[in-house]
Design a binder for these strands. Structure first.
Length: 197
DNA sequence: TCTACGATTTACT
DNA sequence: GTAAATCGTAGAA
């Protein structure tokens, strides 16, 4: 079952926590990958020094973050990896949630083809660049609709179990000054599939 | 135009 | 533990 668009209109911090335990689905032709979101990071917009849109920066790269909540913001990092973000809050309020790690549920064979050489199941999708590669996510999906989309979308887990949410500082944003220690990384306690336990 | 560097991964010591 | 890989983008010139 899909979320209502209004689910993504909350601020990034709320969406980062609310997405945990729900499903990220990728469809390519008749192949299908289903994963569970286990780790996220909130990037809180113009106020947040760690965010690409800090100070209202609006460039070609960050344009997708200005879309209404529920769209995808995908960018290349270090010349070799892509990162998937879920745009949050309203139009022209450029916040986003970075999907840092997911747990493969369905289509693991397909994921293994995309992640050649990786043997351990827990190493397939435990990092933003890794999961992008595993789900064949690249810039062609930038700006796509994760609420109504067909190739890449988010589904509600109607049997969401109880779990504890751990808050921790975000990763690799040493340049963010006083924002670098904010506990805006969120993950499911005890999950074997998070990037940094 | 030109330059520096990053919301990372991987391999190697 | 450290470092290389690798290139689009932001910001400066």
């Amino acid at each position: 079952m899909r979320f209502k668009p209004s689910f993504f209109m909350q601020d990034a911090l709320a969406v980062a926590e609310a997405l945990l335990g729900h499903f990220l689905v990728r469809r390519i032709g008749n192949r299908r990958i289903v994963t569970k979101i286990v780790e996220t990071e909130a990037y809180c917009g113009v106020e947040d020094k760690g965010c690409h849109t800090f100070g209202g920066r609006r460039t070609e790269r960050t344009e997708a973050m200005f879309l209404p909540g529920g769209h995808a913001y995908i960018y290349m990092i270090y010349g070799m990896n892509f990162c998937l973000n879920v745009v949050s809050a309203g139009k022209d309020d450029p916040q986003a949630v970075l999907i840092r790690a997911v747990e493969p549920l369905e289509g693991i064979d397909f994921i293994k083809e995309n992640r050649k050489g990786i043997v351990k199941d827990t190493d397939l999708t435990n990092g933003p660049g890794k999961l992008a590669k595993a789900l064949l996510i690249d810039k062609t999906l930038n700006g796509c609709d994760l609420v109504r989309g067909k190739e890449l979308f988010i589904e509600q887990n109607l049997q969401l179990p109880d779990f504890t949410i751990v808050s921790a500082p975000r990763v690799n944003i040493d340049y963010a000054g006083e924002f670098k220690d904010k506990p805006w990384r969120k993950y499911i306690a005890g999950s074997k599939f998070v990037s940094k336990p």
